[in-house]
Design a protein around this nucleic acid. Structure first.
Lengths: 204, 204
DNA sequence: TCCATTCTTGAGCAGTCACTCAACAAATAG
DNA sequence: CTATTTGTTGAGTGACTGCTCAAGAATGGA
């Protein structure tokens, strides 16, 4: 950490970040198991040996792909909304509206990588499915936490069920991702997002 | 068709319906590609040769599994609700409430087979993904049709957007299935269903 | 009895899967 | 220079994939 000395040995001949970006795309499009190492190495422009040297194995590459995706604008918009919007209502509306726009954006694969990339998985890759499940449930917990704070601060009525509301909005987000993968465009998803906001206590 | 003559040749030694039921369970649990022929033959209690003789190939078996699932109580509740309920409002509420109960019923795999069994698929099995996508979009179209009729009959306000509402409810259903697969129980999903109904024009 | 028909069985097919490794290449350190 | 370290390469690993097929078994019909 301190020395930051020059790297020894033969330097890497490919751009690690660019290669990872290619892997993200593929996993996003097809999912973890449906993406083969052959497809990965071809899209990343490297040979299997380089992939294993640089990323570990397929599971480690996937985990890193999910992490980097989660820090990208497309993957981090819910966390940003929760952190930046002054009100819970504002945060939730922004999440739904941005989800509608982002999930149907044709410049990248449809929907959310964390929602759709490990739904059909062999027994031996169950840990990968669990990994993404935990990511999703953490997102749900973050919404619920924000709603509880809103309740303490008086923004959300004391009679409202923060837990149920959080589940509801998480359900909408996951549904939007699925509908985008089924071909729904941004206009259609936006209408869904607006309708979904009607469930907010005291009307839309 | 007319003769109904006795079957010639060696009779089948296994129960075709029971074997198909076992296949449905596996596909429901893991999805199309993540279920191997080895797992199928073991669960169905037959050898590969018998499977191919009785069902064709893996894709044909899957299609038949989806069809039979779609005629079962668990798979046909949306169509039943649309056909049996006198009002569109009643049909939609029933769909959401039954989805909450059925998708989280621990006596069978979580969620909906048609929603979750072919989301991560290789290029060579794209037709299977398309097949289920069409099934889902047909479900959406059925809801939209019912809402349009409700609008003609005056149940739904003329100003309401039947298409957007249908998309919204389809999004909820798909979201409920996903949440069930993530471990949400019936109580949680029921709360989501009730909140979702708040979007119905003129309040819940 | 003998044939035709249908099903079951077990062995095994070509292809793909994720992954590995010895040999070579390119860099730094001394 | 040599030694060390790290990366790339191409061939290849065993295990698994969906699937097939010849041989044998069980039925009905003549």
């Amino acid at each position: 950490m301190a020395g930051m000395s020059k790297a020894r040995g033969r330097p890497r001949t490919f751009d690690r970040d660019a290669a990872l970006e290619a892997a993200i795309r593929l996993f996003w499009e097809r999912g973890f198991e449906a993406t083969s190492l052959g497809e990965l190495t071809e899209a990343m422009g490297i040979r299997p040996g380089s992939l294993y040297a640089a990323f570990g194995d397929k599971k480690a590459l996937f985990r890193e792909a999910v992490e980097v995706y989660g820090r990208s604008p497309v993957g981090s918009f819910p966390a940003r909304a929760l952190a930046e919007e002054p009100t819970a209502r504002g945060a939730v509306s922004r999440i739904l509206r941005e989800a509608a726009a982002v999930y149907a954006d044709p410049s990248h694969p449809a929907g959310c990588l964390a929602i759709s990339a490990a739904t059909n998985v062999t027994a031996q890759d169950d840990e990968i499915a669990k990994f993404l499940r935990d990511v999703r449930n953490a997102g749900l917990a973050a919404i619920e936490e924000r709603l509880r704070r809103a309740q303490e601060e008086g923004e959300l009525p004391a009679g409202a069920d923060a837990s149920a509301l959080a589940s509801y909005f998480a359900t909408i987000v996951q549904g939007l991702s699925q509908r985008a993968r089924d071909g729904a465009d941004a206009a259609e998803l936006s209408q869904v997002a607006e309708l979904a906001l009607a469930a907010w206590p005291d009307g839309g």
